[in-house]
Simulated scan of single mutants.
Amino acid sequence: MTHCTPDSLIPQNLERVNLVGLSRDQLADLLTGWGERPFRAKQLWHWIYHRGETDFDRMTSLGAPLRERLKAQCTLARPEIVRTQTSEDGTIKWLLRFADGNEAEMVYIPEDDRGALCISSQVGCTLTCRFCHTGTQLLVRNLSAAEVVGQVMVARDTFGEWPSPIDESRMLSNIVVMGMGEPLYNYDNVAGALKIIMDGEGIALSRRRITLSTAGVVPMIERCGEELGVKLAVSLHAPTDAVRDQIMPINRKYPLAELMAACRNYPGANNARRITFEYLLLKGVNDSDEDARALIRLVEGIPCKFNLIAFNPWPGSPYETPSVARLEHFSRLLNDAGYSAPIRLPRGRDILAACGQLRSDSERERLSRHKARLAQGIGDDHAPDA
Rank of each mutant, 00 (worst) to 15 (best):
residue 222 E to F: 13
residue 277 F to A: 02
residue 250 I to V: 15
residue 245 D to C: 12
residue 379 G to F: 06
residue 132 C to V: 05
residue 281 L to P: 01
residue 105 E to H: 08
residue 256 L to H: 08
residue 110 P to Q: 07
residue 131 F to L: 13
residue 87 S to I: 01
residue 182 E to N: 13
residue 86 T to E: 06
residue 242 A to Y: 01
residue 300 E to G: 07
residue 284 G to S: 06
residue 215 A to T: 11
residue 289 D to A: 14
residue 84 T to C: 14
residue 331 S to E: 04
residue 58 R to Y: 07
residue 82 V to R: 08
residue 291 D to N: 14
residue 320 E to Q: 15
residue 72 A to R: 14
residue 115 G to S: 11
residue 220 M to R: 14
residue 71 K to A: 11
residue 185 Y to V: 14
residue 297 R to G: 13
residue 287 D to Y: 05
residue 224 C to R: 01
residue 351 I to W: 02
residue 239 P to K: 11
residue 176 V to Y: 04
residue 142 N to E: 07
residue 380 D to C: 13
residue 381 D to L: 12
residue 141 R to D: 08
residue 115 G to L: 12
residue 317 S to A: 15
residue 250 I to H: 03
residue 299 V to P: 00
residue 40 R to P: 04
residue 375 A to H: 11
residue 325 A to F: 09
residue 271 N to H: 09
residue 84 T to Y: 04
residue 264 R to M: 00
residue 205 L to C: 04
residue 220 M to N: 07
residue 33 G to P: 04
residue 18 N to Q: 02
residue 142 N to K: 09
residue 324 V to Q: 13
residue 15 E to K: 13
residue 75 T to N: 05
residue 180 M to W: 05
residue 70 L to Q: 06
residue 235 S to W: 00
residue 262 A to Q: 01
residue 135 G to I: 04
residue 64 A to N: 10
residue 264 R to C: 00
residue 57 D to Y: 15
residue 28 A to V: 04
residue 158 T to I: 11
residue 257 A to L: 03
residue 107 V to D: 02
residue 17 V to T: 08
residue 353 A to K: 06
residue 266 Y to M: 00
residue 238 A to G: 14
residue 86 T to R: 12
residue 168 E to W: 08
residue 67 R to S: 10
residue 330 F to I: 05
residue 203 I to K: 08
residue 101 G to H: 15
residue 296 I to D: 06
residue 83 R to G: 00
residue 353 A to H: 04
residue 161 E to S: 07
residue 51 R to A: 03
residue 47 W to T: 13
residue 170 R to A: 10
residue 247 I to T: 11
residue 224 C to I: 02
